[in-house]
Nucleic acid binder design. Structure first.
Lengths: 214, 214
DNA sequence: GTCTCACATTTCGTATACGACATTCGATCC
DNA sequence: GGATCGAATGTCGTATACGAAATGTGAGAC
């Protein structure tokens, strides 16, 4: 018995591969995407590659140069800041919704992520800590039961991930962040939705302030 | 002199045509999408059609049936409600951001939309009123200067439009709604960002309450 | 008459082919 | 020697071709 809707099509796989490569920085900002080359590297035809690139274009991960093909979008402070501003509104909402829907399993999961996150920060594992950060917030989106939040934020995190990996001095990899996560989650477990939401809002403001200037 | 980046590719045009057809209800929920048929009707090959459908799938406008092709996604109360919940957080943020960025032209535009909206409601033109509703909120997204808000909400509105056209009893087509729009915009013009945001929040709550039961 | 199994048909995903446009490079002209 | 124009090349968007998988169909068995 396997997952019912596995990403089986080459288009999906190609899209995932490209997005992953862009977000982990293995394809740098400004770099051109040559369809033939990508197709050869992934051992597929240009057809799925072409479609995948069209999707990435719509999601602003690549830009049309007008002249020849597309290039990976530059890391854009504006987008980065826009997402953080956006999160000041969305994250507290997600927390508010998720609080009433916490299950025993979810609580275990949450505590586990927080534990791991703290440990990664202490170990200086920035990349692993970032993954935990994503995981923590994703858990809340999922728990919120609001598909729009999950879908929207999952794309936004891809943009954030990209920016965060590029510039090393990012919010998310400090112990303070995980202390806040911990407090937020405790409030959620206690059922204090409004308190948790307020903390999450503060958490976002703090993170925004930590965005390096220029 | 024309727009520099016109939707010139057949893929873009096909995507737009399909999305429009789905959102205006000219392709009904549950209906199957036959690539050959669509290609023939639009006088293009299956290639752009296939790519366009893949994008619509990612955006949940169509569902994969697993068996043969895709069908237009059913009008889903859950998604509808999720978007409204989402908006209770995002709309006030957009208002807050937009208030500080109002230009003379924007004020003129806003007043004009509100005037037209009221008139359409009074004339009983539900469809035109809905378009004005979209236009009003879109103006605020644009003014907010936050690309994430604009992008995200523009897709969400497509979902809303679809649902609203299907069930006729929708929020948006009452005089009260436009009275609220008017008050919100007046506060914005006065520079009262927090007041306007609070009104927008209330506006969203009111709209959510008006969603017909089942 | 109904069930079953094989064969035909549909339709999709993907590969390959083609034509258009732009860029690049080289040859010619001054 | 440098500028300019045209041919060669690269690369994309799109069309067409192909193979696989699943559905529809019809004949034969009971």
């Amino acid at each position: 018995m396997r997952a019912l809707t596995q990403n089986k099509t080459l288009l999906d796989q190609t899209y995932e591969a490209l997005l992953e490569a862009i977000c982990t920085g293995s394809i740098k900002a400004g770099e051109r995407l040559n369809q033939d080359e990508i197709a050869a590297r992934l051992s597929v035809s240009r057809q799925p590659v072409n479609s995948a690139i069209a999707m990435l274009k719509a999601q602003r991960f690549v830009n049309d140069t007008g002249r020849r093909g597309v290039v990976v979008a530059p890391i854009d402070r504006t987008i980065f800041e826009s997402i953080y501003t956006f999160r000041t509104a969305v994250e507290p909402l997600a927390v508010r919704l998720a609080t009433g829907r916490l299950t025993r399993d979810a609580i275990t999961l949450g505590r586990d992520v927080i534990e791991r996150g703290k440990r990664q920060v202490q170990a200086g594992e920035r990349s692993a800590a970032l993954r935990c950060d994503i995981e923590f917030h994703n858990l809340i989106y999922t728990l919120s039961g609001n598909l729009i939040i999950s879908d929207t934020m999952s794309l936004n995190w891809r943009h954030l991930q990209r920016a965060m990996i590029e510039v090393l001095n990012v919010p998310g990899a400090t112990l303070r962040v995980w202390k806040e996560h911990d407090e937020i989650f405790r409030s959620m477990v206690e059922g204090d939705a409004e308190g948790a939401a307020a903390m999450m809002h503060a958490h976002m403001i703090n993170a925004t302030l930590q965005i390096p200037e220029e």
